[in-house]
Structures are given as structure tokens and as C-alpha cells.
Design a protein around this nucleic acid. Sequence first.
DNA 1: GCCGTTTTCGGCCCGACTGTTTTCAGTCG
Length: 571
Amino acid sequence: MHNAEIARKFHELADLLEIQDANPFRVRAYRNVASIIEGSSRAIEDRVGKGEDLSQIKGIGEDLAGQIESLVKNGTLSQLEEARKEVPEELIQLMRLEQLGPKRTKQLHDDLGITSLDQLRTAAEEGKISALSGFGKKSEEKILDELGKLKPEKEQRMRLGEAEQVAGPLVDYLDELDEVKKIVVAGSYRRRKETVGDLDILVACEDSAPVMKRFTTHPEVADVVSKGKTRSTVYLKSGLQVDLRVVAEKSYGAALHYFTGSKAHNVAIRQIGVDRGLKINEYGVHKGDKLIAGKTEEEVFDQVGLPWIPPELRENRGEIEAAREGRLPKLVEEKDIRGDLHMHTDATDGRNSLREMAEAAKKLGHDYIAITDHSRRLTMANGLTPKRLREQMEAIDRLNEELEGIRVLKGIEVDILEDGGLDLPDDVLKELDVTVCSIHSKLNLSRKKQTERVLRAMDNRYFNILGHPTGRLINKRDPYPIDLEAIVEGARERGCCLEINSQPKRLDLPGRYAQMVKEAGVLGVISTDSHATDHLGFMHLGVSQARRGWMEKDDLLNTRTLEHLKKALAR
DNA sequence: GCCGTTTTCGGCCCGACTGTTTTCAGTCG
């Protein structure tokens, strides 16, 4: 069972308990454990398998450790089964609507007998909801409006970070077979799109039968849709569709190219083939009946007169022309990253101490990090006042005297207030090495006002990096209305940078906007926004977005040495 | 349900915003 699925079960339990009006702190404990598991870079299943004591993890006590273990071992969570008896589990669907939390959901159920989204729609259309106490006409309208926008859960694509947790173990499991010569996950996963619709696993081997057997009998498989010699399709228990395709080694490169896509890229490449009298398919490049290439992707590209193109660029958005003209970018790689400039500690809403964050970052090979806790306005996160920030600065000074091999920079994630001011006075900001400036409130301002708000904030000479610039949460919240072109231009004029936030839920900026930043000559910053030492490993996800935005090492701030970084930050 | 150089019991981030209110509950972050 994957981390994402374990986390989902605890979230569901928390939702059900909340509807039941359970102790809110107990609910929080369940939500907390869900987020710990979600954010863990190691598979909980493995940790249980190795007999690790999960109660050593902060936020997990003896009780929860036991619940996790039994969930992993038996596949069931008895507390969840109990809760489902009390509350219809479909009710949780109602809480996917904005404005509907546990209390009003319970009220809808108790007063109108509503258990599903369909029944909610009918009740709203019949005007029954506005008649309830606490609801009104506006609430009813909003519910109908939200219902119209809501996508069925099944049609949602899985976030890349979650898909990695599913794909990694599955690939390892298949790779244990001697028959498997090569194995890779192709498709949008390999192109590093922010979400994937399904997993396309490609295997090179001569005898497919044992591979197909092993694949379709994997314990995570819920349903075998088809099982053949070259292709099988299954649904995992998590709902994710996985296709396995088996080809001979001589066709591996061609198949890899074919199944990596994108479709638009493949069509364009095949057209070039046709122009040269070649037929290109998943088995290879053919001249007449003769197979002339296909063992590697390089061979396939070579046949159409192109150098190898990185998967992240294969969207037919200019990469073929660039390849032809020899101006493909040398994309940034994770090893180019020298430091991480956005992370939190337990002084605000992080889970680890200053020292723990620094030591974990050092282990990852970073030359420097910046501690950027929240500022005072974010009370829910226990945001720092000037006084507490100064205390943290002193603690950083002391830590830097002790630590070797890594430099801890003083920073803040300071809120951009509604009027474009920053949440801390200039004389405090002045003392910091770096500021990440972010919007956490008033997300629903008009596009014009939101844009002006950020531009005004950037006027402050201590504004360094715009944090999670679009504010989107993948599958959950759209970007707030904002004129990003104007923001990028404003950043260029003022010498500000834009963040590429690596949190799996955010990936913000997305690749397409990263490209805009690069083209404007504005520096990007890839940060993890870590709230625990475990999150520091999300860097590669941000790097993938930068790569999708054609970014090279020099297009980024945190690929620089500490010395150059400091110069670049001075305004 | 978790946690403890205040504590093994009694705390647990709390303010802004909205729509419904007539003094506030529910939701969100």
C-alpha cells in the first residue's frame, strides 16, 4: 500500500469523524498523520516491513503507529470501518464543495436526508436548502455553481509526486525478474507533466509471459482489464490505470519514443520520417520492409536528422525546430542546485528544528539554505513577529558558528498584505539575507487588483523572491486571477526573482510559466518550501518544472555559488 | 490522538471572512 493511499484513508477517517463532531484535536491528529505520510519520501510500507518503530516519528504516537501497522499488514483500518457505519461515506463528497464543511454537511444530512452530490443538486434546485437555518439564497446559488464546476473524482489526473510513489515500487517489483532487460515509465510521467492520467510502463525482454504474469498478479492490482502478449492493462486499488507494454530489445528505443509522446511531438517526428521516405512506429524506423533503427531513442532521432531531445521538451512547442537548428537548451539538472531558499521550522508550521533542517540539507549536499518561516499575519501558522524573527536570526548566527560545510541564511516568507505592503517593517527585512514574499490571503481579488498588489509589493527594495506565484493547488484550487506577464515584466524591471515551488501539491510556477520567466530574462528559484526534513527531497519535482520551461543552469538563482547568490540578491 | 526543561493531565496555532445574522456560527487557511 502506497503512502498516498494510506494518507487518503486517514484523511477520510478525519472527514468522517469531523462530520460526527468528534474531538477536533483528535481529528487534527488524524489529519496530521495523513500529511506526515503524504510528505514522507520513504514508503511507510517498507518502514513497517523493516520493523521500524513509527511512534518515533513526531506526531505519531503508540496508538496511531499501531493503526498504521495494521492498515499496512491487513489492508483495513478498523477505526475507518467503524466511522463508515456511523456516517454514509458518500457524505464526504459534499465537503469537496467550498462553503461546505463538516457542520453544514451534517445539517444537510440530518435535516434533508442528503447523502450524495446528486441529492444535493436536486435539493438546491428545489429551493430546499435556502430554507434551512444558517443557509440562504446565496449559499444555495453558490452550491449549484460549485456543483456545475466539480469534476468527477475519477476524471482527475494523479499528481506527479503521488505517481512517483506508485511507479517506483512497481518498477522495482517487475525489475526483479531476470527476463526484464530494461524497464522505464514512459508517457507523461517521463515528460514530467505535473499530473499523469495513467502509467505507461515499458519493458524490453524476449519472453513476455512471465512479466505479464507478475504484473497482473501484483498485490496492488484491483482489476485486470486486459492481458496479452505485448500489452496488459490493469487498475490498481488506488484507481490508477497502468499499461504495461513489452517489446524486443531491438525495438526498445522506438517504443520508448513512441510511448513517451507527446502525441503532437510524435506526429511531427513521424511526418519528418515520411518526408524522408521512412516509416516510424513503436517497433522501429523502417525503410520499405527493412528495420533500420530502433534500439535506442538516439537512433530514432538520428534517422530524422535530429539530436536526442529531452522528454520534458517533447510537446511540439518548438523543440523540433530548436533541435534542427542546434539550439536545444542544456536543461538544468538536480545536481546543478546548490541550495534551497524556502523552508520552515518548528518556530512556525514546520515539523523540524532549525538545526535538524540544516543538518538534513547538508546531507543532501546543499552549500546553503535559507530559513524562511512565516510572518506574523499568518497566525494559524504561528507567524513570526519582529521580536521572534530577531531571536531566530541570533540562533542562526550561533548555528553557523558550529556548522561546517553548509551556510544557513536568514530569511522570511513574508506575507504580501492586501494593499501591497509587506507584513514586517523594512528595518527588520533589511537585516535578512533573503525574503520570499507570498500571498496567503485575499485570493479572490480582481485580476487587476491582485496584479497591482504584487507589483506594489515588489517596489519594496527588500522584496527578493515571489513565492508560489500563481497560488494554485493541483486538483484543488485554480490559480488566482493575476496578470503573470505584467508580474514577470515588473520583476525584470525591479530585479526580483520568481519561485518554482517544488511541493507536489503546488509545482508553482508550472513549466509553461517558467519558460516565460526565462524568456523575460528574470531569474527563477527552485525551492522546496519544506515543512519537514523529509520535504527537502522534493527538489527534483521543481527541477522537472524548470526543465519543462526550457530552463538552463544560468536561468536560476540557486545554482549559483553563495558569493554570487548574495550579489544577485542585492537590489 | 499527541505531547511534556511548565505538565502523564490538560492543554492543543487563531484571526479573517462570509453570509447569516441582530450578536454569531461555520469555514478557511
